[in-house]
C-alpha cells in the first residue's frame, strides 16, 4: 500500500455514515407527502353530491374567480371532527368552502353534517379517491387554497387547528 491517504478512506466513509445517521436522529423526519400540484391549475373533475340535500362538486363550480378553500374530509376520520369548528370560524369570516367526502356513505355524511355542522357550499363524493389522486392528496383531512386564477396555491395537510385559521385567511388573501 503506497497510497497512505487511501487507508483513511474507510474511516471517512464511516464518518460520513455517522454524520448522516446523526442528522437522521436529530432532525425530525418529515413524513408528510406534499402535493406537487401546488401552483398548478385545479384539475378537471365532477363529483356527485355526497349526501341528500347538498350539491355535488365540479371543478367548474370553483372557477368563479373567487379564492376559496377546498376541504377534503370523511365522516370516518376523527381529526375531521376536530377541525369542524374551525371551518365554521372560517366560514363566518366570509370564506367559501367546498368539500370532498372521501370513501363515505351518504347516510354517514348526513349524520356527520348533522353533528358537526355544515360549513360547506358544495360537497362532492369521491368514492374511489380518484379526485384525491388528481390533487396529489395523501389523506384526510386536507385543505387546499384555490386562488382566484383557478390555481392551487396552498395545501394544508392534517386538521385545521385554531392557530391555522389566521394563516389560512392570509393565504386566501394572497391568492386573490
Amino acid at each position: 500500500m503506497t497510497r497512505p491517504w487511501l487507508l483513511w478512506l474507510p474511516l471517512a466513509v464511516i464518518a460520513f455514515i455517522g454524520g448522516l445517521a446523526i442528522y437522521g436522529l436529530l432532525v425530525p423526519k418529515d413524513e408528510l407527502v406534499r402535493s406537487a400540484m401546488v401552483g398548478q391549475k385545479l384539475p378537471q373533475f365532477a363529483l356527485a353530491p355526497a349526501t341528500a340535500g347538498v350539491q355535488g362538486l365540479a371543478s367548474s363550480d370553483m372557477a368563479d374567480g373567487k379564492p376559496r378553500l377546498l376541504n377534503i374530509f370523511a365522516s370516518w376520520c376523527i381529526p375531521c371532527k376536530a377541525e369542524a369548528p374551525h371551518l365554521e370560524t372560517l366560514k363566518k369570516a366570509g370564506v367559501e368552502i367546498d368539500a370532498i367526502a372521501v370513501r363515505d356513505r351518504p347516510e354517514d355524511v348526513a349524520v356527520f353534517l348533522d353533528q358537526f355542522g355544515n360549513p360547506f357550499r358544495r360537497i362532492g363524493a369521491d368514492n374511489e379517491m380518484a379526485v384525491q389522486l388528481m390533487l396529489g392528496s395523501s389523506g384526510v383531512p386536507e385543505t387546499y387554497v384555490i386562488g382566484s386564477d383557478g390555481k392551487i396555491s396552498y395545501q394544508h395537510i392534517g386538521d385545521i387547528r385554531e392557530e391555522h385559521v389566521p394563516m389560512l385567511l392570509e393565504k386566501l388573501a394572497e391568492a386573490k
Binding site: S75, W76, C77, I78, V102, R103, D104, E128, M129, A130
Partner: peptide
C-alpha cells in the same frame, strides 16, 4: 386507519 368504505376502483 379507519379507511372508510367505498367501492374499489
Amino acid at each position: 386507519f379507519a379507511q372508510g368504505s367505498g367501492p374499489i376502483p
